Simulated assay, not measured.
Amino acid sequence: MEKKNATSDFILLGLFKHTRSHRFLFIVILTIAIASLMGNILMILLIHRDHRLHTPMYILLSQLSLMDLMMVVTIVPKMASGFLTGKKSISPEACGLQIFVSLTLGGGECFLLAAMSYDRYVAVCHPLRYPILMNWPLCLKMTMGSWSLGAADGLMQAIVTLSFHFCRVREINHFFCEAPMLVRLACADTSFFENIMYICCVLMLLVPLFLILTSYSLILAAVIHMRSTEARKKAFGTCSSHLAVVGLFYGAGIFIYMRPKSYRSANHDKVVSAFYTIFTPMLNPLIYSLRNNEVKEAWIRWLGKCANLKPQ
């Protein structure tokens, strides 16, 4: 059988070198990635199995866990195999798939977080009208819209990025294929596409962020005027979890995609990319579990059922 010509493949230089300290960091990150997978799988199963969590808020949360789960599965296995086997090449097709999936999930999460902020706004500011303003058809439209908008951005950037002619040196100073890193290898003038990509990133990041900030400004105003201390604490507890997730996700996204060229550093990009592709997916289920009484009660009920199923 004729061997495939490897000259068309890209080389991922990776996140780690084969030193003692980097081996330790690799084990730490692999452990975090496994914890992220387990945490998000358990969150999805918990929401699916507990009928009390079958509300728009938790359905949107299950979609967030699904996106985080897919992000880790898309990035970590290739990174780990490259470090362990030394095989760092990646085909253009696999590279394009990584760009498409990572941007689909990243863009989709932007709009999903905006949908979750609207859900919290309705729950806090219009609790009596919640079944009308946040009904199941609207929840489904928000979910499908988040996935569709992310997929449109990912598909466009993946196709255009791989359409460029790349120079002989096809080494990507990263641990996965990310559009900004790949564009730097192109021999052609990419300034027009980079401007378009920048505009897309601004729209994908800042439009949902504006909606999130608007929702929470209205929530804050409503919470301040609440007379009940208990209701105020509950509102702050629920919303603070969501704001923590928003801060982690948007901080990393803005750092990667909205900095001027002159301030970009490959090493900094790799560290921040590791944060939002590996660390943040692990933190999301922890934040929502530890700061949410309904989720904690659901865990207790599930563990109680599991204990009762054990043979005496």
Rank of each mutant, 00 (worst) to 15 (best):
E2Q: 14
A6W: 12
S8G: 13
F10M: 11
H18P: 03
R23Q: 14
R23Y: 15
V28L: 15
I32G: 00
I34N: 01
I34D: 03
I34E: 04
M38D: 05
M38H: 05
D50T: 13
L61F: 11
L61D: 02
D68G: 14
M70A: 10
V73W: 12
V73M: 15
P77S: 09
G82P: 03
F83K: 02
F83V: 04
K88H: 11
C95A: 08
C95S: 08
Q98V: 02
L105G: 00
E109T: 14
C110H: 13
A114S: 11
M116N: 02
A123V: 03
A123G: 08
A123E: 10
V124S: 02
P127S: 04
L128E: 15
P137E: 05
M144C: 11
M144Q: 08
S146V: 03
S148E: 03
Q157V: 15
Q157G: 05
V160P: 05
T161F: 10
F164C: 02
C167G: 14
F176K: 00
E178I: 15
P180Y: 07
P180L: 04
A188F: 07
T190W: 11
F193M: 07
M197N: 10
I199D: 00
L203M: 09
I212K: 02
T214A: 09
V223T: 04
S241H: 01
S241M: 07
L243W: 05
V246Y: 00
Y250P: 04
A252R: 04
I254T: 05
I256D: 02
M258W: 08
S265E: 06
T277H: 09
S289M: 13
L290P: 03
R291N: 14
W299F: 13
R301M: 13
G304V: 07
G304F: 11
N308A: 12
L309Q: 15
